[in-house]
Amino acid sequence: MNQNSWIMALALILLTAIVSPAVHGQTATHEDSAEGLRLFRTNCAGCHRWHGGGGGGYGGDALSLRRTKLDRAQIIEVIGCGRPGTGMPFHLRDAYNDGKCYGLSATDVSNGMVREAKNFLRPNEIEIIADYVIANVKGRGEPSFAECQAFFGTGSRACNVYKSQQTAGQ
């Protein structure tokens, strides 16, 4: 193998190493929606609401995940890295240790440019949340009674308001 071949092989290995997680993230999905719901509820619903529609409030102006154009890999990136300059915090513990998030460093975190989540998530958990969003939130219209009950269960009155809206609309 000549020198050029070695360089080519090394480049391929590096390219595979860089691209693989993203490719893996694009293709593999998690079917465990109960786990997704639990993680979404604990980590996301405070600002994005149970239905993912977002809106203003004490949690800041969270974007609508129902109207998002982000794909799975982008959602994973935003959950892990946060969105600098906004209220969206990063959830990967080492997001800013090696520049993999937008090329920013720990200094940018310490100066408040990027918010740090109160609780960190494992990469696998982030993927589960992204799959939950894609399967249950992204592209949905107005929140419905059925959706609400899927989230809160049937034992609570948390969905009454959607039931009455549904009745009124009939």
């Binding site: 409030g57 004490y58 949690g59 800041g60 102006d61 308001v161």
Partner: peptide, 25 residues
Amino acid sequence: ITNEPTKPGSFKAREMFTGGGPSDP
């Protein structure tokens, strides 16, 4: 404080109705 203009008719029961939000830098 970040202001977000509120449109008449945008109110929904059980949804935050705040016209913006705070952050703590």
